[in-house]
């Protein structure tokens, strides 16, 4: 009996925690299928009869959704790739190789987060301006890697620490080079960690707003959050179309997460599991 009550309470706790996170999204998802007229009533009133896709149709007319989507995907993919390469190399160095100054390097990496992004905005704009990278997606890739890679190194910590030393020993016996050891043994062994790291960078890039709104000018190169950002603060804020835009912006990363999310969570938790 007491056991049953406790199980009931625990279930309630789980549902409660999940609900805190998920319910607001369900609310706005519901709103995105409603005409704006209903959304600006003092008492929330959803109507099943008026459920429809009109907000999405309007959004599709007003915004170059698929252009934004493609840009976001390009930026996120390249950011992830570069960040992953840099982070794996650095993690291997600071977590598997023993040399003077590696602790300092490690700290230096994390201390990069000391500098406010806003501080970098103006000088980076100038530098990119000179390199002809303003209004170019490459500028976003560069910035995203800067802000993602140091934390990625730390995320890989557990995975590199967990690799038994005997493996490298065996490889060394075969006379394998360090690069080969890294590529053929370490990388496969740390695959869950790499997956988690990649997903982390991907999400960070997908959500980045400040630099994307500053560096990108042309409509055809805007990322999804910036493209959607243009909908806020207009003369007519139409909550229906905004809700649809919010859902459309969130959807790709949520769908992606539905497929790879468990690797992210498993990766995070498995790394320190040793």
């Amino acid at each position: 009996m007491a056991r049953g009550v406790r199980r009931g309470l625990f279930a309630l706790l789980v549902v409660g925690i999940l609900a805190i996170v998920v319910v607001p999204f369900l609310w706005i998802l519901l709103a995105s299928f409603q005409p704006n007229r209903l959304l600006i009533q003092p008492s929330p009133r959803f109507s099943l009869a008026e459920m429809g896709l009109s907000n999405y149709e309007n959004l599709q007319q007003a915004a170059q959704y698929f252009t934004y989507l493609r840009n976001s995907a390009v930026v996120a993919l390249f950011s992830t790739l570069i960040s992953l390469i840099l982070a794996v190399l650095a993690a291997y160095s600071v977590y598997r190789l023993d040399y003077r100054g590696r602790q300092t390097l490690l700290r230096l990496l994390l201390i990069t987060y000391v500098f406010p992004g806003v501080l970098l905005l103006i000088p980076l704009y100038q530098i990119f301006g000179r390199l002809n990278l303003i209004d170019n997606l490459l500028s976003l890739v560069i910035v995203n890697v800067t802000f993602a890679a140091p934390f990625c190194v730390w995320l890989l910590r557990g995975f590199f620490g967990a690799i038994p030393e005997g493996i490298e020993e065996a490889a060394a016996l075969d006379g394998a080079g360090r690069m080969r050891i890294l590529l053929t043994m370490i990388v496969p062994l740390t695959a869950p960690g790499l997956a988690a790291t990649a997903i982390y960078t991907f999400i960070l890039s997908w959500t980045e707003y400040m630099f994307a709104s500053a560096f990108i000018i042309d409509e055809t190169r805007k990322t999804l959050p910036v493209g959607l950002g243009a909908f806020i603060a207009q003369y007519y804020v139409d909550w229906g179309i905004l809700a649809a835009a919010a859902i459309a912006t969130a959807a790709p990363v949520v769908i992606l997460f539905a497929f790879v999310g468990r690797y992210f969570v498993r990766g995070l938790t498995a790394g320190s599991g040793k």
Partner: peptide, 11 residues
């Protein structure tokens, strides 16, 4: 912000 940054960068 956009206009001044763009002018500074010659864009």
């Amino acid at each position: 912000q956009k206009a001044t940054s763009a002018i500074q960068a010659g864009r």
